[in-house]
Design a protein around this nucleic acid. Structure first.
Lengths: 136, 136
DNA sequence: CCGAAAGACCGACTGTCAATCGGTGTTACG
DNA sequence: CGTAACACCGATTGACAGTCGGTCTTTCGG
């Protein structure tokens, strides 16, 4: 019935690291990113620049010129990105059987610690409350 | 601090459909799979066979000979596969900030319906109970 | 025992995409 | 105006998936 295509647009190795760097430091100048990630890898500044540009073209980074150089900065937060990713994955995987997914997730959360489990509980409770007495 | 590589081994288009077919019908003979998925696409039986084989090599399908032909069957359940996928994704994404993830997930679950939200609640409650009074 | 039919494999191509550079313009500044 | 710094474009390499064609092997009715 449901053919599940399964198509997430993930990032490559370098791309991921670059995004993380930019997300962490909140900003990304080619030189800086290269010093932090490129140099250790022994790759050219050029490569880093291309990657930054690709990320920009993918809409994950924003950039603006300062003098004649570009300065990049995140366009979507790490959270938003992850959120979207998980959303897509989940959407594609679960085409009906949300059950399996939910329990799978609880498993994961549990592994992350009891505190997270409790946090999850609180969140769910809140949502349900909003639904119940909520408007809409 | 944490560089998040981000590497999920997803399946291709055809591969996904084949897996779904096998999961649904519980079984996969080349001919059958081809009739169901290949023919409509206008692709050769050969292509389907290659795909089945690749899936087998990836460990997702098992197979055994019946006469001189192979009959495939799922080696991991759809649930297990999804579980694993989500687990990897989550594991790679969240390297510390489990928070964002948890709330993101609740969002998704909510979108799936209140019933799922309640199911989630029940599950969490159960886990917490097990932890509390549980052995270990 | 023999040949056709069914099926499994291997090798080869194409297309997509990330990672990488080199080479070539461009621009800000002393 | 020359140079250093930087942006871009184009090309290459290395995965992979999707697709086949060609070929070797096994099974089975005569």
């Amino acid at each position: 019935m449901a053919s599940v295509p399964l198509h997430l647009s993930l990032l490559g190795e370098l791309e991921s690291e670059v995004m993380n760097h930019v997300w962490s430091t909140g900003q990304g100048e080619v030189k800086a990113v290269h010093s932090a990630l490129g140099a250790p890898r022994g790759i050219t500044v050029n490569t880093v620049q291309s990657t930054l540009k690709r990320l920009y073209e993918k809409g994950l980074l924003a950039r603006h010129k300062v003098s004649h150089a570009y300065v990049y900065e995140p366009r979507v937060s790490r959270e938003a990105f992850h959120h979207g990713l998980i959303g897509k994955l989940v959407g594609q995987l679960v085409n009906g059987q949300a059950d399996a997914l939910v329990s799978a997730f609880v498993d994961l959360t549990e592994r992350a610690g009891v505190d997270q489990l409790q946090r999850l509980e609180a969140l769910v409770a809140e949502r349900l409350r909003q639904r119940d007495g909520g408007s809409r």
